[in-house]
């Protein structure tokens, strides 16, 4: 199944884990009976590790993230997140339009139990972190798409969770903005030491960001293969090393998809 060589990522599992997904299955009851979406998924995310989950559209990536986030329960298996409730970033920014950018972050702080007197400074620090120092009083609709995703990232970080779940957060952005946000995410990940489980169907994005790429098969979703990415950060999406590994993974992904056309 997996062709992982022993790496630093695996060493870290010995010390603990940010998320442990053990034999998780999920089926949805539909009018034509049960539909098995995830089948016996086992996956660990080590503390401080960056893992991308790669898979074709509809293979159950969002379903898996929702399970880890605790928004839904698995049909079988167990999920542990020892660091508490994970933070989740959606494909759409999911910011609350009735609050300003700064107040969106302060709400997350408030729900985390940060005292009122500290919230403003902390919110401004987080906005600085995503390089949006002047955006505190801006309404969501006054921000561009890339700025919204950065505020959403700041709000997710405001939860101060050990684990950050990201569900195709940059899929709707143009290529240049996405590039910039990749750099930002890598920087923030290295500065904060948060563990990231990042979902995407973009192979290059997966390789650009991750220490480990996990490929899911479709219908039902299973872990098909894993790769460890041993390329130094900061990487660029057009680096040859990134491109080479992407080609290899794309071949595998195509094989997975082709398998479904055969029956």
């Amino acid at each position: 199944m997996a062709t992982t060589t022993l790496t630093k990522a695996e060493d870290r599992t010995a010390v603990g884990h940010a998320a442990r997904i053990a034999h998780v299955s999920k089926s949805f009851g539909g009018p034509e009976g049960q539909q098995l979406v995830l089948d016996d998924i086992t996956l660990d995310v080590a503390p401080g590790e960056f893992v991308t989950l790669l898979g074709a559209s509809g293979c159950g990536k969002s379903t898996l993230l929702n399970l880890v986030a605790g928004l839904d329960r698995p049909t079988a298996g167990s999920i542990e997140t020892p660091g508490g409730r994970p933070a989740l970033m959606f494909q759409e920014h999911a910011l609350f339009p009735w609050l300003t950018a700064g107040k969106n972050i302060e709400l997350a702080l408030r729900l985390r139990g940060v005292p009122k007197s500290d919230r403003r400074t902390e919110a401004e620090r987080l906005l600085e972190l995503v390089r949006l120092g002047g955006a505190y009083g801006k309404r969501v609709h006054e921000l561009s798409g890339g700025m919204r995703q950065r505020v959403a990232m700041a709000r997710a970080l405001a939860q101060d969770s050990q684990l950050l779940l990201m569900d195709e957060p940059f899929a709707a952005l143009d290529a240049i903005t996405r590039d910039v946000l990749h750099d930002e995410l890598t920087r923030i990940w290295r500065e904060t030491n948060v563990s990231v489980l990042f979902v995407t169907h973009n192979v290059r994005e997966a390789v650009r960001l991750a220490e480990r790429v996990v490929l899911l098969s479709s219908r039902p979703g299973r872990v098909a293969r894993e790769w460890t990415v041993d390329i130094d950060q900061p990487r660029r999406i057009e680096d040859t090393a990134v491109a080479e590994l992407s080609v290899e993974i794309t071949e595998e992904l195509r094989g997975e998809i082709r398998r479904h056309g055969q029956h």
Binding site: A69, G70, L71, R85, P86, A87, L88, F90, E92, A94, F96, W98, L99, L107, A108, L111, R112, R155, Q159
Partner: peptide
Amino acid sequence: PLHLRAGRTLGATGLRGTWHIVLPASL
């Protein structure tokens, strides 16, 4: 539904969810 789910991941459930998410969102 996205706002409700975002609220839940931030920890706004039950009465806190009603106060911080449901009421302002339905304004």
